[in-house]
């Protein structure tokens, strides 16, 4: 097993197509087969895009249109499209404040995980202390701990400390559960930094802290980028943690929208536009940092 994983491409990317050299006969046969494959792939791609497209179009149609006809009718009658749903949505204070809450939760939860995780990862990679390997094994073990197991004990703890229903409480929970992955990913990356580089920094009289800040963090930037994107999306998209620990004042957008679910059929205008607003940021992040994102996913297989 060990050898095979070692063969994993060290620079994973979505673009991993190989171009083997082949005889002319097989190439022609391959070309014919490729036509079929291309058609199949196009159908699959459409299959993957249409549901999201349906959400987008539904979010742009008035409520009356959504309840009387399918979103696909808008393709032939685009005049029914309107931004009204979005205007209504952004006029509602519960929605706007929950959107702000989502940002207020996601950003600190991401920054803190990177900071705390990087400090621990550096110690685990480059400072010798007794039991170091055991700590690392513990971190790997904690990667798969289900959130559910912490809900009741932490709810009790938050109740006792006054953190229940606060944004701080939600953030801390996310940070803690993001840490095993953060430490794991960053420590793997940090341990790849050439020793000479660190030794040289120390020769120059750098303290441990300044080595961390001036050498480790800048070199570790790609891994930090992967981690940040991953953690940010994870927190942004969360429902469960906020469902338990947030109250109406600190609830993120997912919880605010969930309140509209009960009457699904009559609330499509709110749900579709609200959901679309909530996925715009993740989609932008995904498409702009696709490469780092892929690396994070490949590294975080155990999460």
């Amino acid at each position: 097993m060990a050898t095979a994983t070692e063969t994993l491409d060290p620079t994973p990317d979505l673009n991993t197509s190989g171009t083997p050299s082949r005889s002319i006969a097989t190439r022609i046969a391959g070309r014919l087969g490729q036509g079929t494959v291309q058609v199949i792939l196009i159908v699959i791609a459409v299959f993957w895009l249409v549901p999201v497209f349906g959400l987008l179009i539904s979010s742009l149609r008035p409520d009356t249109a959504n309840s009387s006809s399918g979103w696909w009718t808008a393709l032939t009658a685009p005049s029914q499209l309107t931004l009204e749903n979005y205007a209504n949505l952004l006029g509602e204070s519960t929605i706007t404040s929950s959107l702000i809450n989502t940002v207020l939760i996601s950003v600190p939860a991401t920054v803190l995980v990177v900071l705390i995780g990087a400090l621990a990862a550096y110690a685990l990679a480059w400072i010798d202390f007794p039991g170091r390997d055991w700590v690392m094994i513990g971190v790997v073990g904690l990667l798969v701990v289900p959130i559910q197991i912490a809900l009741i004990p932490i709810a009790k703890f938050y109740g006792a400390t006054g953190l229940f229903g606060t944004i701080t409480g939600v953030v801390l929970f996310h940070v803690a559960f993001g840490l095993p992955f953060a430490v794991f990913l960053l420590r793997n990356y940090f341990s790849g930094i050439p020793r000479d580089l660190l030794e040289a920094a120390r020769m120059d009289g750098g303290t441990e802290w300044s080595i961390f800040r001036r050498v480790v963090l800048p070199i570790g930037l790609p891994a930090i980028a992967s981690l940040s994107i991953f953690q940010f999306l994870w927190v942004w998209n969360d429902l469960l943690v906020a469902l338990v620990f947030a109250d109406p004042d600190s609830q993120p957008i997912t919880i605010a929208l969930r309140g509209q679910l009960r009457q699904f059929g009559s609330n499509i205008d709110i749900l579709a536009s609200g959901s679309f607003i909530s996925i715009i940021i993740p989609l932008i992040v995904f498409f702009s940092f696709q490469r780092y994102f892929v690396q994070g996913v490949l590294a975080g297989s155990t999460k």
């Binding site: 994973p12 685990l124 400072i127």
Partner: peptide, 21 residues
């Protein structure tokens, strides 16, 4: 671990052995 995180790390192979300063 799938080695995605090591992508582009300066010396991916030597880095496996965690060093101690």
């Amino acid at each position: 671990v799938p080695r995605g995180a090591d992508a582009g790390s300066p010396t991916p192979d030597e880095g496996r052995r965690t060093g101690v300063l």
